[in-house]
Design a protein around this nucleic acid. Sequence first.
DNA 1: CTGTTAGCGCTTTCAG
DNA 2: CTGAAAGCGCTAACAG
Lengths: 341, 341
Amino acid sequence: MKRLTLKDIAKALNLSAPTISKALSDSYEINKETKEKIIAYAHEHNYQYNALARSLKTGKTNIIGVIVSTISNSFFSQILEGIEESSLFQKYNIIIMQSRESPAVEKKCIDILYSKGVDGILISPVSDSANLSYLQQLHNGNCPIVIFDRINNNLQTFKIGIDNKKAAQKATQELIDRNYSKILHITGVANGVTNERLLGFQEALKQNNIAFDDKKLLRCDLSQIQIVEEQILNKLEELKNDNKSPDAIFTATDLLTNRTIGLLAQQKIKIPSEIALIGFSNTNYAFSFNPPLTCISQPATRIGKLAFEKMIHILEFRLKKREIVYETIELDAAITIRESI
Amino acid sequence: MKRLTLKDIAKALNLSAPTISKALSDSYEINKETKEKIIAYAHEHNYQYNALARSLKTGKTNIIGVIVSTISNSFFSQILEGIEESSLFQKYNIIIMQSRESPAVEKKCIDILYSKGVDGILISPVSDSANLSYLQQLHNGNCPIVIFDRINNNLQTFKIGIDNKKAAQKATQELIDRNYSKILHITGVANGVTNERLLGFQEALKQNNIAFDDKKLLRCDLSQIQIVEEQILNKLEELKNDNKSPDAIFTATDLLTNRTIGLLAQQKIKIPSEIALIGFSNTNYAFSFNPPLTCISQPATRIGKLAFEKMIHILEFRLKKREIVYETIELDAAITIRESI
DNA sequence: CTGTTAGCGCTTTCAG
DNA sequence: CTGAAAGCGCTAACAG
């Protein structure tokens, strides 16, 4: 069972390859009957065009590359779901790659995607990425880039994410409104997104005349999941010994939120009576937590869809040589109030 | 910034395209100095080979297509993670597609992947897939197939999944050992995987001389998530009215398990004192549930890795024209005992 | 309406 | 050791 080509069909029907090609793309140039005959034959023999050859000729692959740090992170997998859905709709396909928070791996991903001839790349860049200027270069060339999630950089293109500072401020204010004031903020080591969230946290404190105490800030090394819990427990211990135990915790990422809730349960610390908890979380299961978790969730699927749409926008406008006005879109994250605060 | 080609490099260095090609693939045919000069030039100008052209010529894309029903399902996203990791290691890339439980969409995915010239396809087929014979045909031709997760079919190739019957039997036995006997089994509408689990459930009952009561079986339509909860609540209500309330629930899928635990909490039904719960679950957060969830989890990442390795095995053996002995690998699922039973 | 020609960028002979 | 020629399968341009 060798692969069927246009030439094969042409030979079988005593026609030429271009005629087959035109017929299958429903060109007006081809006689109706011939067309029908060709389509029938192609269908019957389950002809699948060779996308490689077509792309080589047309210079267009209809593939968009997507780079995230980790596929199995629920936030990203929801974004991917959104991208995939939009891409299907637009007759595009996506190649997904993982940068694993490493600039070197990220560079490799970009190169591979470029060599595959993707029409564009959607990327949530590694925090202190050395690749930003490279991305800008590609974007200015023939491979447009759209940034999502980690939009805190000065790339000149579309950027889709959420207003992290605002979201964090809202979460903190929610705690303060409920009379919590001794708030521990647990976050990751510096990167654009968590930095914004920290700023929002601090801003809310300031607005309410609560002094920021940097003992009440824990930065976990998220790349080492196995010791995150240790770090959290140590911090709680330390604060207790200093007589500075928090009455609430605000966690800045999915993983930290979900780990913390498990940890507090394990330590028999009652939520919210002993310590309240609010945090960023994009699992579908926050309502199944112990107790049901009050959390800030990002419109992940929508971020993915929007990012994809903006890519299509760029591709279309470049084709028509129309001017493109880039914008940074910061969506609002929603707070879902449940029982943990 | 046009894309750099071999011809461009050849012109710049006063050589021919084939020479550049050979030098970059480190051919012994090329003089050491020439080679170094070429590599230096390519590197400096950030040459990326055109994978399209190469693949068209060599008939190999080094891309493996992967089809799952839903990317954002944590079980699948973990499998994808495993596949992606292995593929990176083997210099392969993957194109991920979603079949969304629809045979028609699945067919489309297969066709697209085939037209992209993927070297093989890894697939968790839609349950009552009409595409199985098509897959077999591709496999027998030039596009090998490896099945994962839903291995309950008679395709002649490698199949990687878990022993679902055994896992379900183990879970049920665990309940029975703890003196639960009025067990409600919540599962999806018939498909290979959940059918196996149902058989395991029934087998365990039989082994312990507990009669199977089909009132204690609920089949939910998983495609309509919004009404799953309703169905579960109705069933509980119905059993209660019949004076047949269960003392334990065994849920057959991730989604059902996680929804059920949230639901019971919401109904203030205490776990495990009023109703115990055990179920299949592959979230990373089962320990954060209310209460920490006793569950059966599948070695998802490993399934992904194994599936990929078997694909590589097929590709290598076909190349060397060596005989391939197919096997079906059924891994064991692990029970993690926590506090919900 | 249909066919001929050419070329996308690469690699694989094979010749020199 | 290097280069010339050919061809992967497709489509765009043009000829008839």
